[in-house]
Design a protein around this nucleic acid. Sequence first.
DNA 1: TTAGCCCTGAGA
DNA 2: TCTCAGGGCTAA
Length: 273
Amino acid sequence: MPELPEVETLVRELDKALRGRVIQGVSVGHESILKTSSLVLKKNLPGQRIIKVDRIAKYIRIELSEGALLWIHLGMTGQIFFEKPPARLLSHTHFVLSFENSDRQLFFRDTRRFGRIALSRKEKETLPCGVGRLGLEPKEWDPAAFASAFKERRGRIKNLLLNQNLIAGLGNIYADESLHRAGLHPLKRAHRLPRRRLFRLHEAICEVLEEAIRQGGSSVSDYRRLDGSRGEFQKFHRVYGRRGEKCSTCSSPIQRIQLSGRSASFCPQCQPS
DNA sequence: TTAGCCCTGAGA
DNA sequence: TCTCAGGGCTAA
């Protein structure tokens, strides 16, 4: 599942590949992934130059020459490739951009169609994706402010880490990995945690994201880099996807529980309840 | 705050 | 054939 490190990896590669290119054509497979109609995309995108590609949390932001922004969210199974068109389009390819003077095209594939594509005028508009409502990213949080904000919340710590309006960029993988590093059980109530534990949690989140970015993200199921290769960080997961395996710290078997419709993996020894 | 929905492929 | 995975949104 693409989270902040996966999107960051992809965005760096996209920026290198696309910066300065002029969009020539747009084709759309499945309309349901579009937050902006295909009619509007086909009318507005051709002729626009790509100024740069970056991201806000898990949203890829492509800045275009006429002050427009093209947003892509990968959902759970979204993939982006930049390559020569294959003889036969891969299944689940829902969005394709072609470019002037280029034999390579941008392909967006998404098996489960949880991904979204939208065009907007201004960054802060809430229209296409709710981007305007996002909380700060982990590195943007001042540690003391982070601790204070979580001290005010009565919810389960794991749920709060997944709340994009509070802290943006984490998903199930890095929430679980951060909690393990910080020695916190996922069901703990945030307001009951001592401030020093919240400081440690913030530090653990920043650490784990940084390491994951260095490894090109985690390829658990569908996530791929721009050239189709896999990330490497899944090899370093300590709890996520390791139910029943031994904890790398204390050798206790990793457990998994359900929490608000999501799984939570943790070590019962290192993360006592 | 939480349950349910979207969606498909993998695995039991 | 059934169950499960989950990001983000909506409704209760």
